[in-house]
C-alpha cells in the first residue's frame, strides 16, 4: 500500500517517442530496406515482403502487386503474349485541374513506361488458354478511361469470338474524371461486351485486389461469373470517405473489405496470392472440361 506514490504515476517512466514520426523517418531514410504495412502498420523488412509475394508476413495484407509480377505469378513461363499495346490515351477534353491531363499523362507514361492503366494479353494457366486484363493501380489510380475501356472490350470480344475464358485482375479507384462523360461510357461499353461474352457461354472471372471502387467496381468487377477477392482488399461502389460524409456515421469495422463482402454474399471467395494460380486453374478446368 502506498508503494507507488501519485507523484510517480504522473512522471513518465521513459522518454516519450512519437512512433508514427519515427516510422516515417525510418521509411524515408531506409526506403529500400523497410516498409510500413498499410493494414497493421508494422514496420517490416522489405525483402521479406517481396519474397512473400508482396504480402505482409504479420497480417497477410496483400500489397498492390506489379503487373509484371502478376503475369509471372499467373501464367505458365513464357506463354503470356501482350495484346493491343499500341492503344494510347488522348486529352480530347483539354482537361485541366491543377495540372493538365496531357502533362499528367506524359509524366505518368514516362515514369511507368506504360501507355495506360491496363495490360491485356493471352497466355496459359497450367496449360489452359486464358485471356487476361491486369490493372496497374500506379497509373492514375488504375482509372477507367477510353484506353482501358477499349482494350478490355477488345479482350472480351476476342474471348467471345474464340471461346477463350477471360479473367480480369482489378485495381482501380474508378472512372477517369479527366475524360469526362466518355469515361462513364466505358462502363457501358465494357458491360455490353461482357453481355456478349456471357451469351456465348464463355466464363468470365474477376479477381478484385486492393482497391476496386467506383466505375470499375460497378461494371467490370462485379459482373464476374465468379468473383474472387484478395485478402483485405477494399471493394465497393462509393469510397468510405464519401459514405462517411454523406451519412455522418461511423462505418462498421471491416466495412468494404473482402471478408465483409463474402459475408454479405457479394463475392464468392477470398484467395491468398500464393494460391491464386492453383484456384483459377481449378475453376477453369471445372468449367471447361
Amino acid at each position: 500500500m502506498g508503494f507507488f506514490k501519485k507523484k510517480d504515476k504522473d512522471k513518465p517512466p521513459h522518454i516519450e517517442i512519437d512512433i508514427q514520426k519515427e516510422i516515417k523517418k525510418a521509411e524515408k531514410e531506409e526506403k529500400a530496406l523497410w516498409i510500413k504495412c498499410s493494414s497493421c502498420h508494422e514496420l517490416i523488412y522489405r525483402k521479406e515482403v517481396e519474397r512473400n509475394l508482396d504480402v505482409c508476413p504479420k497480417c497477410q495484407y496483400h500489397f498492390p502487386y506489379s503487373v509484371q509480377n502478376r503475369i509471372n505469378l499467373i501464367f505458365d513461363k513464357g506463354t503470356f503474349v501482350e495484346l493491343y499495346r499500341g492503344i494510347e490515351p488522348v486529352d480530347f477534353l483539354k482537361f485541366k485541374d491543377t495540372k493538365s491531363y496531357k502533362v499528367r499523362l506524359q509524366e505518368t507514361r514516362e515514369s511507368l513506361n506504360r501507355n495506360d492503366a491496363v495490360v491485356c494479353g493471352q497466355g496459359k494457366i497450367k496449360g489452359i488458354d486464358a485471356l487476361a486484363a491486369i490493372f496497374d493501380f500506379e497509373f492514375m489510380g488504375g482509372s477507367l478511361g477510353s484506353v482501358v475501356g477499349e482494350k478490355i472490350t477488345r479482350l472480351l470480344e476476342e474471348g467471345a469470338g474464340k471461346g477463350i475464358p477471360v479473367i480480369v485482375f482489378c485495381a482501380s479507384g474508378g472512372a477517369r474524371m479527366q475524360e469526362g462523360i466518355l469515361s462513364l461510357m466505358q462502363m457501358s461499353k465494357v458491360s455490353g461486351a461482357i453481355y456478349k461474352l456471357k451469351s456465348q457461354r464463355i466464363p468470365y472471372i474477376t479477381v478484385l485486389t486492393d482497391p476496386t471502387l467506383g466505375g470499375v467496381s460497378a461494371s467490370i468487377a462485379m459482373l464476374g461469373d465468379i468473383i474472387i477477392g484478395e485478402p483485405k482488399a477494399m471493394i465497393g461502389f462509393a469510397g468510405p470517405r464519401v459514405i462517411k460524409e454523406t451519412i455522418k456515421e461511423e462505418l462498421p469495422a471491416g466495412f468494404q473489405r473482402s471478408e465483409y463482402l463474402v459475408e454479405h454474399g457479394m463475392i464468392d471467395m477470398i484467395v491468398p496470392r500464393k494460391e491464386i494460380k492453383q484456384k483459377i486453374h481449378q475453376l477453369l478446368s471445372l468449367i471447361t472440361t
Binding site: 453481355y195 460497378a218 459482373l223 462509393a238 459514405i243 451519412i247 454479405h264
Partner: peptide, 26 residues
C-alpha cells in the same frame, strides 16, 4: 447519383448498377 450508404454497399450497389447496365444490352 446512386446513394452512398452502408446498406447500399452491403446490398451490392456496385453489382446492381453493373447488372442493370449489362441487362439493358440484352
Amino acid at each position: 447519383g446512386a446513394f452512398p450508404g452502408i446498406g447500399a454497399e452491403e446490398r451490392g450497389q456496385a453489382e446492381t448498377i453493373a447488372s442493370a447496365i449489362c441487362f439493358m444490352f440484352s
